[in-house]
Amino acid sequence: MDFTITTTSALPFDATVTAVRDALADQGFGVLTEIDIAATLHTKIGETVPPQLILGACNPQLAHRALQSEPR
């Protein structure tokens, strides 16, 4: 079972991250959290993996509307 949504970018990693942040901002989303998976795994268990980030994005207007219709 696959739980991911993927796309491929021809840009280098750092440029891709910038492009994603810009695209999110264009749609009214801000990045509230950032988890650097590669750095965390290296620090915690000494493993080296390719660069990977989890960006926790939020659109305040959409979040407010969602909470109004379902507060739980």
Rank of each mutant, 00 (worst) to 15 (best):
T18Q: 10
A38Y: 01
T8R: 15
R72G: 00
L32P: 11
D26K: 15
Q27L: 15
A57Q: 06
G28Y: 10
P51R: 05
M1H: 11
I5Y: 08
R21L: 07
I45V: 11
M1G: 14
L67G: 07
N59V: 14
A25E: 08
T48W: 00
R72T: 02
I54S: 00
P60F: 03
G28K: 13
T43N: 08
A10P: 12
T43A: 14
F3Q: 08
D2Q: 12
A10Y: 08
D2G: 10
L41E: 01
L62P: 03
Q52I: 12
A10Q: 14
Q61W: 07
R21D: 01
I54L: 05
L55F: 06
A63T: 12
P71H: 06
A38K: 06
H64W: 11
Q27N: 14
K44C: 00
R72C: 00
G30F: 02
T7D: 09
L24W: 04
R65E: 10
G30S: 12
Q52E: 05
A25F: 06
S69M: 13
V20D: 01
T18G: 04
I45D: 00
T7G: 15
G56M: 06
L55S: 05
D2K: 15
A66W: 03
T18M: 05
V31W: 01
Q52A: 11
D22E: 15
G56P: 10
F13N: 10
I5P: 02
S69Y: 03
D14P: 09
N59W: 07
T16N: 05
A15K: 13
D36S: 05
L11C: 06
L41Y: 02
H42T: 03
G46V: 09
I35P: 01
Q52R: 13
D36P: 10
P12M: 05
M1R: 12
I5L: 13
G28L: 11
A10T: 15
G28A: 11
A15L: 09
T4Y: 01
A38W: 01
T33D: 01
V20Y: 02
Q61A: 14
D26M: 12
L62G: 07
L53F: 11
S69T: 15
C58E: 02
D36M: 07
T16V: 04
D26E: 14
I35Y: 04
Q27V: 11
T33Y: 02
T40D: 04
N59D: 13
T4F: 02
T33C: 03
K44I: 04
T7I: 07
T18K: 12
R21G: 01
T8E: 09
D26N: 14
T48P: 00
S9K: 12
D2P: 14
T48S: 03
Q61Y: 06
Q68T: 15
L55M: 09
E47T: 10
H64R: 14
T48Q: 06
A39Q: 11
N59I: 13
A57L: 11
T8I: 14
L67K: 12
V31S: 04
A39T: 05
E34A: 05
